[in-house]
Design a protein around this nucleic acid. Structure first.
Lengths: 354, 354
DNA sequence: GTGTTTCATATGAACGTTCAAATGGATAGA
DNA sequence: TCTATCCATTTGAACGTTCATATGAAACAC
């Protein structure tokens, strides 16, 4: 009654061979070593490939080549924690970059380090991935040791925060340079009293960004005494911390903030005092999350070049996959200031006044 | 000089067989059809499996079984658009759900529909995935037709917004029911004049949510005239729209908002008038994005049950993969109100007053 | 015209599985 | 004791590739 085959079966290398009147190994050569074929047979085979829409079956290549062309990456439960959204952007960039090199990204869900290692174990033992891109490095991170010990290729987006007995490739954003650039940006717009709203001491990333602010201020001869406050991340916290500074005798005229959420909070505090964000008091956030463009005026922020980081992560990882003895490379890339209304003295003018 | 092999090669079914003194096919049987083995050989084989840490190589299974146990999902460039972050949560849930059924999620980057279809083409022709989970359905969506035509298994998270000549399985969140619940929640807390802050007419999702508000208000006998405003998404827009309503002669005492960004904006407007969010004017957002918990007071929101949606997406997709003739199922799931400070008359009390 | 080289193409084998079918030893029935 | 039945295990084959090697025809030198 019903047709047995509506959709034609996917062509194999043999059906192409039959179509082109050659042996199937010749088709393989046409694709993998075209210089071996006589030009006329090459075009004939290639036309058959085209005509039948043939693409080598992934599973068969994988088996033969002992590779998967797949990169593992952890999907985090970002449940309510922060408005990072950095992950989403990085993931897109990573996937694009991998694809450009002929690789795919396979995602796995993991809750903590142990959970993630269990996933490593699973994927590696099944030979389901060629390597991993790690993110969210932190102190006492057991993941790198586990992978290094088993000689599983990996690259970390996020520097090691402590000495390890082994080396591995990593990339990171220079948070220090980011707050330096942010502070310089505000100073270039004429601000002398620049405040800092940060996270409590103890977080690797937060301390790094704080240090950058301090260094830039010292370099520029700007005061920092009584101009820095720190607290847990959040819009509400940012409002309170900024309000505290604004209520002082000599309030800052600009804020460098450790995160976009803090910066949005600072913007509220400024508006709450009847001041205009950008004109009266400048604000700059960090991460350039979607938050930055959803507020009014749009918020300046320090943007991590996730696209190029992702690309370099893939490059480094593939180097290691191709040759496990390849050199270990590490690099710190500088984020850039994205200037928007929240740090412009006047809305329409460009942000490069002296 | 250097050791030839630091890490032992991954065990294959044959090395297990040698270790357990059986043929390698018996090892396969032990794993896939244990009832065929005599109990003592079964335990012996299983112990060898355990001891060597053997796991069947994915590529070999894939080739033999003509399957990949991989689900394709598009990674979107959420660049600066909105604070959705829904995607991130869904992705985690999808990955978990897939894994529980023995599947992995492979990500691909695509910018628009055509780009995504090109990725379908690529992945399908290489036999790299067993099926797809779609998201972000919209009017004139060419993706479903493409997949349906080629009989590629797929499920859509997001209903079809127009009639199609073919059927497919989909799941969606009932935005209508969400705003109904939000409105009822506010009414239950004693509010009679409930405003609505929405998106401009024309967006499928926005109109659906607006209709829910209207229906609930009508049902409860509440006024809506002069209480609804609409504008493009954003915190700033929310502030302006809410300020407009609050400035009226008979302002609303509560806001149902089409998104969390709008709701955060409304909270600002309320505070700006010197009123207390929650006590004086209640606010409820939609999506329960990270934004909701990053503000002060924490914001009530309508939460999409992404975890169960992801699970059901996987279930439906695997049904179709297992049997392409399996029934087409569609279902609309109801989101739930997450009550927090922004809609509580008094901070510490539970949100169930009359 | 025979022997050697060269190049294009074909043959054989392997990657690690799973499934269908064959084998062989034990048990039961005559 | 011989054949039939059963069950545990083994044998054979296949999934679709790619790589190493063998073949054979044409081209060249002698």
């Amino acid at each position: 009654m019903s047709q047995p085959e509506q959709v034609p079966a996917r062509p194999t290398i043999k059906s192409v061979a039959r179509h082109a009147q050659v042996s199937y190994q010749t088709v393989s050569n046409a694709l993998n070593a075209p210089e071996r074929l006589r030009p006329d047979t090459l075009t004939r085979v290639l036309r058959s490939v085209e005509e039948l829409g043939y693409r080598p079956t992934q599973a068969a290549r994988n088996l033969r080549l002992q590779t998967t062309r797949l990169i593992g990456f952890r999907s985090t439960r970002s449940d309510g924690q922060g408005v990072s959204s950095i992950e989403s952007r990085f993931l897109y960039a990573l996937t694009s970059a991998a694809r450009d090199r002929g690789y795919g990204v396979i995602l796995f869900a993991a809750d903590g380090d142990e959970d993630e290692i269990a996933m490593f174990e699973d994927l590696v033992s099944r030979g389901a991935v060629d390597g991993f891109v790690l993110s969210g490095s932190h102190r006492h991170d057991p993941r790198t040791a586990w992978l290094a010990e088993r000689e599983v290729p990996f690259v970390s987006f996020g520097r090691p925060w402590e000495k390890t007995s082994f080396d591995y490739s990593w990339l990171d954003v220079d948070g220090h340079a980011g707050t330096v650039a942010a502070t310089e940006h505000l100073a270039a717009n004429g601000h002398r009293r620049i405040g800092f709203i940060g996270w409590p001491e103890g977080s690797e990333v937060g301390d790094d960004r704080y240090a950058g602010y301090l260094a830039a201020a010292a370099d520029l001869g700007l005061p920092t005494r009584g101009l820095t406050v720190r607290g847990l991340d959040g819009i509400g916290a940012g409002t309170q911390l900024a309000a505290g500074l604004l209520g002082k005798a000599h309030p800052p005229t600009a804020f460098v903030c450790v995160s976009d959420a803090m910066a949005v909070g600072a913007m509220h505090a400024i508006e709450h005092r009847g001041l205009a964000v950008g004109r009266d008091v400048a604000v700059i956030g960090f991460d350039d999350s979607p938050l930055a463009t959803v507020v009014q005026p749009a918020m300046s922020s320090v943007r991590q070049p996730l696209e190029s980081i992702a690309r370099r992560c893939v490059d480094l990882l593939l180097d290691r996959i191709d040759d496990p003895r390849s050199a270990v490379l590490t690099s710190v890339v500088e984020p850039t200031v994205i200037a928007r209304g929240s740090s412009n003295p006047t809305q329409p003018s460009p942000p490069d006044g002296a």
